[in-house]
Amino acid sequence: MAKASAVVAPPIDIGIPADQRQAIAAGLGRLLADSYVLYGKTHGFHWNVTGPMFNTLHLMFMDQYTELWNALDVVAERIRALGHPAPFGGAAFAALASIPETQGVPPALEMVKELVMGHEAVARTARGVFELADAANDQPTADLLTQRLQIHEKTAWMLRSLLEG
């Protein structure tokens, strides 16, 4: 019986040098970690919010965690397209994320405040990867970052509006 020979994949050649792909993937790994921590926080707040704004916040948080959940795949798949493994798991995300976990269950408006800070942190992380993507002429990553920035900045504004006035 003939032995099947293993097919070796050719090296990645998408027009971005390996060192730049590595740096961009690392930045996207931080974005993935921040997004995952924010997803978990938002989902937990959805479960635990109470008070006079319960229905409004419960529904708003559901929309937000659903959007974040869907974004995780997009970011992870871009990391994979750049030729690197996407980080996963609590320990990896804790090491990479700039957003702290929440201890206990804060009051509703404190939840809103924490989510404002979380969305702004994700926006800062995304913005920090732009320079790397631009230097590498990496339009797909730049496009992804632009989309994430629009969502996080708008969400932060909407949440912040609940705390003003």
Score class of each variant (00 low, 15 high):
7 V>A: 00
9 A>E: 07
10 P>F: 12
11 P>K: 07
12 I>M: 15
14 I>E: 07
17 P>S: 03
17 P>T: 00
19 D>C: 03
20 Q>E: 00
20 Q>L: 02
21 R>V: 02
23 A>C: 01
27 G>E: 04
33 A>Q: 09
36 Y>M: 08
37 V>A: 02
37 V>E: 02
38 L>C: 09
41 K>W: 02
42 T>S: 03
44 G>C: 02
44 G>S: 03
45 F>S: 04
46 H>D: 06
46 H>I: 07
48 N>C: 06
50 T>C: 05
50 T>R: 15
51 G>N: 15
52 P>M: 15
55 N>S: 05
56 T>P: 02
57 L>P: 05
57 L>T: 10
58 H>K: 03
63 D>L: 01
66 T>K: 00
69 W>V: 07
72 L>M: 10
73 D>P: 01
74 V>K: 13
74 V>Y: 14
76 A>R: 13
81 A>T: 08
83 G>N: 03
84 H>Y: 08
85 P>R: 07
87 P>V: 04
88 F>G: 03
92 A>H: 13
93 F>W: 11
100 P>K: 01
100 P>A: 03
105 V>F: 13
109 L>N: 13
109 L>D: 14
110 E>D: 12
110 E>A: 08
114 E>H: 13
115 L>P: 08
117 M>L: 14
118 G>W: 14
119 H>F: 15
121 A>V: 14
122 V>N: 12
126 A>W: 15
127 R>L: 12
127 R>P: 06
128 G>R: 04
130 F>P: 04
131 E>V: 12
132 L>K: 12
133 A>P: 04
137 N>E: 06
141 T>L: 01
145 L>K: 09
148 R>F: 01
152 H>F: 03
152 H>Q: 13
152 H>R: 11
160 R>E: 14
160 R>F: 14
160 R>W: 15
161 S>I: 04
163 L>W: 08
165 G>A: 03
